[in-house]
Design a protein around this nucleic acid. Structure first.
Length: 927
RNA sequence: GGGCGAAUAGCUCAGUUGGUUAGAGCACCUGCCUUACACGCAGGGUGUCGGGGGUUCGAGUCCCUCUUCGCCCACCA
């Protein structure tokens, strides 16, 4: 960095973000400006709309990664925007107890002590986990503060607090009472490592390269005959109870009803016919293993087959249930994958193995530990989803809830249409215990409070028998998450202030990965328990990826630590980079190996903004400044009116990009359904105003006025401070720290005021003078600069230009004349209204139809200039021909809208004029 | 297997109901320490809008088809 001789001591050239961030975080916190007050909402007699965002609760043991950074920055941008726009804004933070995940962490810790959870026992293990959460949990919420999150931390929620646990229990009992919870005996997904069942969503598909093993089963009464099946899981052969073929399959028709011998054990079993079998797959014959495959289970039920279990909960072979004599000693106790290898060998040795083929298939893995899930026959609690899904489906179809980007609506509808029941019980210890209690007589019921006697009412009078046990399972962690929008607001107390003031919430910001896990279920719970959707907009953002488009993850080592970025470049740089790079639902690409480059946009802009402020505040000085609103419009100069017009345009663009904060009707009207939430467009509109318009043009234009005391200086100061103030407001939701720091230094800023609470900018009334004639000045400067660069005119050397009005308006001509000094400074060009001298070395350019003629004798290569003009004439003539062809086409003039035809005609005039002008120049050059 | 989406500049993406010579940011190239900022200033577009066909006065935009890629779901033994 070059030396900067005139560093102002209290105004360095670079923003000291570290100091400012900690000071502002503290000041915002101490002044309670992120605290939402229910009594100020319309619902409770106040004047404000409520605007509520609920954090997707991170795992209580999580530490901040860049995905959280993105997710929470989006939420913060929205909440800061609405807070400034006058809503009573509530961003409700909190964490999730994360059943399996947290239990896994603690199990790992005690494993280092050589213990398992069973050594500790349930009570001690839960205590140990609570203690662990108390000591290390919630770190992520503190980390969120360092990226500027303006959440209301006084309301921090946690899914395992007594209040939220009450909601969980109430929800369970209500579903129980409506017979929407039931006990199911079926094959579910089982994680042999976590030792628990999983929901369909928690057992994730992964492609794998498997093998199809063709195994021959000999007929019992004639071993020379047999039937060959194909299986990917030869180890489950030990639990086979039948061979199934399709009823219409002629190849096997004669075998149906006969007995075959199970290889290795010689157990007899029947050949059955069932529609489920596909004739064309494999050999068309299928082994049936009801306890270890969900489909086989259904077949087994239909045919009333036995259901022997040969794999124990930890994935080891054994005669677990109904399986006496099924597992030969040599396989006993082997892990299922070791057993597979050995069994294949044994099959080969016995001659039963026909062949092995490669086979691509998908296997399910535990979403928490990646272990291959084992289908397992067991008893679990299920929620009937069809009745819950119906209103949630309707809500999206009728526009009560919109999903952005739109494509997810179709995915959502497709999933809900075929929804399956939800397994909510987990064989874990960490979580909400299933509130089902059983009495001595075996009556199992759900209770709101722990009972001492049975409430089962048989013939009118309660059973009254002693309660002997509570269901040992806990509930799926998502069973508390799905209540988040209502439980955090005080439900089941329907009179809770927060519930009245802030429910339903507004925008849910999350990743598409948990659309079914969480979002869809929240919509269901909203309808089920409060009769309405819990939010009207679901914003599904993209994923942060590396340069190879890989998701950032710990295991790949390609992650970016947001706190590292904050430390290096500041929170604003992090936030800006994420937001400006993020189209709606589009992934953000960052290079973890080059943070300098990745976060340059944010770092550069924060510094630029700081320097605009630095210059402006030093120039404007400390003296009091009049309110802009009190200004006399007649004192405004052209560039003042222009920048005010640009400000209006910027406000309009930002508002349009952000869109309506809420639907203007009960449902989203068609024209609003996909509007807004374009945060990158909003960022770009605000950036362009402050950088490319305010800094690049207005500040340059106003410099001389600031140096000369007088009324005009006051006007300039006033406008300058006003537009900068407004620009800071537009940028504050994305870059809260640098904007707040600068805003508080604005002259005559009352102390104790915060930009975070300053009103969102409003456009001036329609019809306000936008100073558009200034554009002619800018175009003239651009044109002259372009010419200078093109011909390599020495940067310092001044040139002269003769201006004539051409086809421009007199206002444009006046503007240019009045801005001579500016043109001279920025383009190093003296303007003259004298008639342009005719001569060879003159070059004409147009700016808003003003004609600028620059004599460039001695500065330009005439041959090059002539060639350039010729090329341009040729190009334009071609375009002109095409245009004339179109205009002479009767179909075009007849069918195209008149406005389009009119525009094309005007264009023709202009191009023709330009062509002839250039041709004249060419002939002059030639002479 | 079912559903959905994408293909536009070197990269990431805009491009509203078809209508100026297709845009932005980043990257890149050229020239500048013009005393707010070199994390800056000025200038520069580098494109058969994936291929082919069709509708239309007019197609990046609508239709068909092919190719490639991605996402969601699924009872792919």
């Amino acid at each position: 960095m070059p030396e900067t001789p005139d560093q102002t001591p209290d105004f360095p050239t670079h923003f000291d973000f570290a100091t400012a961030e900690s000071a502002l975080t503290k000041a915002w916190d101490e002044n309670g400006i992120f605290r939402a007050r229910p009594e100020r909402t319309k619902a409770l007699g106040g004047t404000r709309e409520s605007f509520t965002v609920l954090i997707p609760p991170p795992n209580v043991t999580a530490v901040l990664h860049v995905g959280h950074g993105l997710n929470n920055t989006v939420q913060d941008v929205l909440i800061r925007w609405r807070r400034m726009a006058g809503d009573e804004a509530l961003w409700l933070p909190g964490t999730d107890h994360a059943g399996i995940a947290t239990q896994n962490v603690v199990e790992k810790i005690i494993a280092k002590e050589g213990k398992t959870r069973f050594d500790l026992g349930r009570e001690a293990f839960v205590k140990r986990t609570e203690q662990f959460v108390e000591e290390t949990g919630g770190v992520i919420l503190h980390q969120l503060k360092s990226i500027g999150a303006s959440a209301d931390f006084s309301r921090t929620a946690y899914t395992l607090t007594p209040e939220l646990s009450l909601a969980v229990r109430e929800a369970f009992v209500r579903l129980w009472e409506k017979d929407l919870v039931y006990r199911g005996h079926r094959v579910i997904h089982w994680c042999p490592r976590c030792l628990t069942s999983l929901s369909d969503e928690e057992a994730e598909f992964h492609d794998s390269e498997g093998a199809l093993h063709y195994v021959r089963y000999a007929l019992a009464d004639d071993p020379s005959q047999g039937i060959t099946i194909a299986t990917t899981r030869p180890e489950t052969i030990l639990a086979d109870v039948a061979i199934a073929v399709h009823p219409d399959d002629e190849r096997y028709a004669a075998l149906v009803g006969k007995q075959v011998l199970l290889p290795l054990t010689g157990i007899k079993m029947p050949v059955i016919a069932d529609d489920y079998v596909e004739k064309d797959f494999g050999t068309g014959a299928l082994k049936i293993t009801p306890a270890h495959d969900a489909n086989d289970f259904e077949v087994g039920k239909r045919h009333k087959l036995e259901m022997p279990v040969v794999i124990d909960p930890s994935g080891k072979m054994g005669e677990v249930v109904n399986a006496a004599g099924r597992v030969p000693a040599e396989f006993m106790g082997l892990d299922r994958f070791d057993a597979r290898k050995k069994i294949v060998k044994a099959l080969e040795a016995s001659g039963a193995l026909v062949k092995i083929e490669k086979h691509a298939n998908s296997i399910r893995r535990c979403y928490r530990c990646d272990t291959v899930v084992e289908p397992r026959l067991s008893d679990q609690w299920f929620v009937r989803m069809a009745p819950l899904a119906a209103p949630a489906l309707e809500a999206v179809k009728d526009g009560t809830v919109r999903l952005l980007p739109e494509k997810w609506e179709k995915v959502y509808i497709n999933w809900l249409d075929g929804i399956r029941d939800w397994n909510i019980s987990r064989q874990l210890w960490w979580g909400h215990r299933v509130p089902v209690f059983t009495c001595e007589l075996g009556h199992a019921l759900a209770y709101r409070e722990d009972p001492s006697v049975c409430a089962h009412a048989a013939g009118g009078s309660p059973c009254g028998a002693k309660i002997v046990s509570q269901d040992p399972d806990v509930l799926d962690t998502w069973f508390s998450s799905w209540l988040w929008p209502i439980s955090t607001m005080g439900w089941p107390n329907e009179n809770a202030k927060d519930l009245k003031a802030f429910f339903p919430s507004d925008v849910l910001v999350t990743a598409p990965e948990i659309l079914f896990f969480w979002v869809a279920r929240m919509i269901m719970s909203g309808y089920e328990f409060l009769g309405r959707a819990p939010f009207h907009t679901v914003y599904l953002h993209g994923t942060v990826r590396d340069m190879q488009h890989r998701k950032m993850s710990k295991s790949l080592g390609n992650g970016i630590d947001p706190l590292d970025v904050v430390e290096r470049y500041g929170a604003d740089a992090l936030r800006w980079t994420l937001i400006q790079g993020m189209g709606l639902g589009v992934d953000v690409m960052l290079d973890p190996n080059d943070l300098d480059k990745s976060f340059a946009p944010g770092r550069n802009f924060a510094t630029k903004l700081w320097n605009i402020g630095r210059f402006l505040l030093i120039q404007v000085g400390e003296e009091p400044i009049g309110r802009f609103a009190d200004s006399d419009a007649s004192t405004l100069r052209l560039e003042d009116r222009w920048i005010l017009g640009r400000l209006d345009a910027a406000i309009a663009e930002c508002d349009a990009a952000l869109g309506p904060a809420r639907p203007t009707a009960a449902n989203w009207p068609e024209n609003e359904r996909q509007s807004g939430m374009r945060l990158d467009a909003y960022a770009e509109a605000a950036r362009r105003f402050v950088w490319n318009e305010l800094a690049d043009w207005y500040v340059e234009a106003v410099k001389p006025r600031l140096a000369q005391p007088g009324a005009d200086r006051e006007t300039a100061r006033r406008v300058l401070v006003h537009v900068f103030d407004q620009g800071l407001r537009l940028l504050h939701p994305i870059m809260p720290f640098v904007t707040e720091s600068l805003w508080q230094r604005l002259p005559a800023q009352a102390s104790g005021q915060f930009l975070a609470l300053a009103p969102w900018p409003q456009q001036r009334a329609a019809g306000a003078d936008a100073g558009v004639a200034f554009d002619a000045v800018r175009e003239a400067i651009d044109a002259i600069r372009g010419l200078r660069a093109e011909y390599g005119v020495q940067p310092g050397s001044p040139i002269k230009a003769f201006v004539s009005r051409g086809a421009a308006s007199s206002a444009e001509m006046d503007a240019l004349i009045a801005s001579q000094a500016l043109v001279s400074r920025l383009a190093r060009c003296e303007l003259s209204t004298d008639a342009a001298p005719s001569g060879a070395a003159a070059h004409a350019v147009l700016a808003s139809k003003l004609e600028l003629t620059l004599p460039l004798a001695g500065m330009v290569d005439l041959g090059k200039e002539k060639a350039r003009l010729n090329a341009e004439v040729e190009n334009l003539s071609k375009q002109l021909d095409a245009l004339r062809g179109r205009l002479s086409n009767e179909k075009f003039t007849a069918k195209a809208p008149p406005a389009v035809v009119e525009a094309e005609r005007a264009k023709e005039q202009e191009w023709a004029a330009r062509v002839s002008q250039m041709q004249q120049k060419i002939s002059e050059l030639g002479s």
